[in-house]
């Protein structure tokens, strides 16, 4: 497996504030990695470090094998970043901003014109082409910021909250475009605190909190990591008694179980795909029959809160 980004104890401090704390992380090539975390969790700092916008206080990082401190120019040639706050001179028009970006990355002549025009049309900016940057709405400015990356098509595309302030249609458009970018061979890193965005885009999710990476995995694996994250609702043919509850409690994978109604129980379990067959085995020879069974996986919201909460508890202790 080749890595687009590898960091080794990467740390960034501002005075006594530790924005990124000893981060060692690997991001696979040609995948979409989503960084999920609350405000101030270090996502943006991490993105600015690997795009060489900021210099690390200690530690190091490689982008496609190039050191961000020793070879910043090589890194910049391969990286494109769409900032959280759109960056542009207030008096420039969208076309000017995109043409500048294209020219800097060696897209010249007619190709530049065509690409800029196409991207502006794709991102719904064509109607605003004669407005100044400072007169764009928040959503338009954000689309413009993101559009830069689609002009450039870098090997490593970085998006910091790409759909903040963007309307629902725009969000879906940007997400689909990000996926296209990956299909075209780019590695993509997206920082967000919007769970739906992470669910839609991520090959893998890294959850950040307080400058540290808490966990990294695929969405399904993350869900499985949540103890008692799956909820199983069972309707039985007879009354639920203490003996039944006790048997279920003692089953492997049960996190907790409660009686909801006379004939209905709700159990929070880990890995429902293992737990449900075991449940059937346990009640196979009993007089009581299972009338229905419903399984609900944890949402990414639950996963996120689980890990962030866990981290907070650790810190409290």
């Amino acid at each position: 497996m080749s890595y687009a980004v590898e960091t080794f104890g990467l740390t960034k401090t501002y005075g006594s504030t530790v924005a990124l704390d000893n981060l060692s992380i690997k991001i696979e090539s040609n995948r979409i990695r989503v960084l999920l975390g609350p405000n101030g969790s270090g996502k943006t700092t991490f993105l600015h470090l690997i795009s060489t916008v900021l210099r690390p206080s200690s530690g190091s990082a490689l982008v496609f094998g190039h050191d961000i401190v020793k070879e910043p120019l090589k890194v910049r040639e391969m990286v494109g970043i769409a900032f959280q706050e759109p960056r542009g001179f207030w008096r420039h028009k969208p076309k000017h901003i995109l043409s500048f970006h294209a020219a800097v990355y060696g897209i010249d002549g007619e190709e530049r014109q065509v690409r800029v025009e196409n991207v502006m049309k794709e991102f719904g900016l064509w109607e605003s082409r004669d407005k100044k940057f400072m007169d764009l709405s928040g959503g338009q400015a954000k689309r413009l910021e993101v559009a830069k990356i689609f002009i450039q098509k870098p090997r490593l595309a970085i998006f910091d909250e790409p759909t903040a302030m963007v309307d629902l249609d725009g969000k879906r458009l940007i997400w689909d475009k990000i996926k296209e970018l990956k299909e075209g061979g780019s590695t993509v890193i997206v920082a967000t605190n919007e769970v739906r965005e992470a669910e839609y885009l991520a090959d893998k999710i890294s959850i950040f909190s307080k400058g540290r990476e808490i966990v990294t995995s695929s969405l399904s694996e993350l869900k499985d990591m949540v103890k008692g994250g799956d909820t199983v609702e069972v309707e039985l043919s007879g009354s639920v008694n203490d003996d039944i509850l006790s048997k279920i409690s003692s089953m492997k994978g049960t996190y907790n179980v409660r009686k909801e109604e006379e004939t209905r129980i709700v159990a929070n379990v880990t890995r429902s795909e293992d737990w449900v067959p075991l449940f059937f085995q346990t009640f196979e020879n009993k007089k009581i029959r299972i009338l229905s069974i419903k399984v609900r996986e944890p949402s990414l919201d639950d996963v996120f809160m689980h890990f962030i909460g866990e981290k907070d508890e650790e810190n409290t202790v």
């Binding site: 600015h48 795009s51 060489t52 916008v53 910043p72 120019l73 910049r76 040639e77 990286v79 494109g80 970043i81 900032f83 706050e85 960056r87 542009g88 001179f89 207030w90 800097v104 990355y105």
Partner: peptide
Amino acid sequence: HLGLTEGVIQYYMSLPIS
């Protein structure tokens, strides 16, 4: 100066120029 206050210098920092 405007580049500094409007954040464009950070954008320049991401471009391939020393």
